[in-house]
Each structure stands twice: as structure tokens, then as C-alpha cells.
Amino acid sequence: MESLDRIDRDILALLQAEGRLTGAEVGRRVGLSQPAAGARIQRLERSGVITGYRAVVDPVALGLNIHAVVRLRTTHARLAPALDFASQTPEVASVLRVTGEDCLIFEVHCPQAGRLEEVVDVLARYGPVTTSLVLRAYPRKPLTGITEAAGRPT
């Protein structure tokens, strides 16, 4: 996709914060008509910049009071089995494959420490793990692309 202009970046910021906004409301907030805003949103969707819409759920409201980050150092041969385990484990909310000493980072939400221990014990079958409890998660910053003038992330 061609570079994003300020209005595209504003639309992305709005939809990342409030994904249920109507095209009319998005247009009002960025200074466009509803049809113009709708056309821009559709273009962002078709080009793959917007990949979907989803509900953001509070894990604590579901009784998942333990939030942890588990880092795994493994071998290439054990990578696929570790990823398979993660995909089949509902407590694993996200997985990142990273460079450096660790290979995978798992974000885990559990109802109690005993279940976290079980998840960590299984992951440890694939290599050394390091577990950190999350004390607080801060809101994610919206992704808005590259500034046109500076050529650096906004």
C-alpha cells in the first residue's frame, strides 16, 4: 500500500481505540463525510492494513487472575512441539518467536498459581524456561504507520 497520510493514520488510531465506531462517526472525527471515511476504511481493509476487528476481554473478569510471561530457550527440533502445545492450551494468550537467547515468549493467563505451574512444567520439557509475573499491563499504543515528513515511526 502507498504511504499513509495523516487522515489514514487518524482513522487507524480511532479504530484501534474504538473498533465499533460507525463510518459516520469516524468521518466526523477526522473531518470527512461518511462515504469518504467509509471508502478509506475499505481501502485500508482491502490492502491488509486493517486485518480484522475483535473484542478486547479483561482476563481478570474471566477469573484469570495470574498473568505471566514465560520465555523458552529451545532447539529447532523442539520448536514445533512447543508451538503445538501453545496452540492447544487456552491459557496461552499469545506467542512471539524472538531472536536472542530465548526462542519463544508466551503470554499466559491462569486462574491460579497451580495451573501456571502446570503450563510452565510442560513448556520446560522443550527447554529452559524463565517465568515472570506481570504486575501491571499498560494500554497498547495504537500503530499508525510512518510519518511522511520524518520517515520514522509515529
Rank of each mutant, 00 (worst) to 15 (best):
H109E: 14
E148F: 05
C110S: 13
E2F: 03
R28T: 04
G127M: 05
I66D: 00
E117L: 10
L21A: 00
R97F: 09
A124T: 15
T74H: 02
V60E: 15
I105V: 12
V57N: 06
L133Q: 00
F106R: 01
D58P: 14
L79W: 06
S87I: 03
A150V: 13
L32M: 07
E117A: 11
R97D: 01
A17S: 07
C110P: 06
V70P: 09
T75A: 10
C103G: 11
A37R: 13
G19F: 05
R73I: 00
E107G: 12
P35G: 02
G145F: 05
V30K: 06
A24T: 15
G151Q: 13
F106V: 05
R54S: 14
V57P: 12
L64E: 01
P142L: 03
E148V: 14
P59H: 00
F85T: 00
A80G: 11
R115K: 13
H76D: 09
V69I: 15
L123P: 10
K141Y: 10
R73A: 11
S33I: 06
G100I: 07
S94R: 04
R9Q: 04
R43L: 08
G48K: 00
E45Y: 08
G52C: 09
V92I: 15
A80K: 15
V56I: 11
V92T: 10
R40G: 08
G151W: 13
L104S: 05
R140H: 12
L4V: 09
